[in-house]
Nucleic acid binder design. Structure first.
Lengths: 155, 155
DNA sequence: TAAGATTGAGTACTCAATCTTG
DNA sequence: CAAGATTGAGTACTCAATCTTA
């Protein structure tokens, strides 16, 4: 019988984008990011990087720019510009350290803390929705796999 | 005893970026994309979008720009610019359709086909490496979960 | 010289507007 | 007007260079 594949394909490689893990990861990341993005973008005028910086400050309290870089694996110029934007939006305050005047301590303002709380609440709801879609067991397995893959280089 | 959490946290939300599925997906997607990116970027001067367009043409043979948009969920202006870049790099040829002169049939040139074969081979190797890292069973579960999540909106 | 952080130049992305053909 | 595709303007990203303080 030797049935042909229904899709027309050129010879020379078996490669299929739809089976390529980096591509599938990207598609899932994009899809899950988009609906949450509308919340921080439309209601708070934030970019994804700004939201990440806010989330780190919300979680850890006060920290320096380089800490955010290390923890969130975001490139330093992105962090620097996100900090500047969050500051001029009134979400964040900087404070030059007395003992080392190269470094700045970053803190959320009351307005920034409020934004973090509201966005954090929405994020938790959304995350529960996603995990509910997968089921709790699959969601846990997914998290383990993603953490493993993310360990690949960390930039 | 009531032990305190070791991390310092502000009150008001339980949200933790490190547990947020969209964030974890993004980190894994970035990490897995980066090492493969060096191949198509450094050896062929391609962007991610260009590589995706090439991969679709390699898989499906000849198609129109709108087909690439639909299949790969890439925005049309990105596809349009990627096509222009691939064409001027000599990887792709366009051919205005006789029956509908709005549309263009896109085909890989011999050089484009060669690039697709070589990159496809590298991609397969890399994908096997990633799946090997997870183990075959986990890799399959991951793919199912990712496809499920990617179905969320499709732009 | 190195560390923390910012800046500049070039590239890529987003999304609405536009062009051309049907 | 609709469909296929391109373009323009504004925004964000990348990466190397720079600035300031240690």
């Amino acid at each position: 019988m030797n049935p042909e594949k229904s899709k027309k394909e050129l010879p020379g490689t078996d490669f299929d984008l739809e089976e390529f893990l980096p591509y599938l990861l990207n598609q899932a990341a994009e899809a899950t990011s988009l609906s949450f993005q509308t919340i921080y973008a439309e209601k708070y005028g934030m970019t994804r990087t700004q939201w990440r910086v806010l989330a780190n400050l919300g979680k850890f309290g006060s920290m320096m720019a380089k800490d955010i870089c290390r923890i969130s694996h975001v490139e330093k110029s992105k962090v620097s510009r996100a900090i500047a934007a969050l500051e001029s939006a009134g979400f964040l305050r900087r404070e030059v350290k007395a003992d080392d005047r190269r470094a700045e301590g970053l803190h959320l303002t009351p307005s920034g803390l409020d934004a973090f709380r509201k966005l954090g609440k929405k994020a938790l709801e959304y995350d529960r929705e996603l995990r509910g879609r997968l089921g709790p067991a699959e969601a846990k397995r997914l998290v383990v796999a993603l953490r493993d893959l993310a360990r690949l280089q960390s930039r």
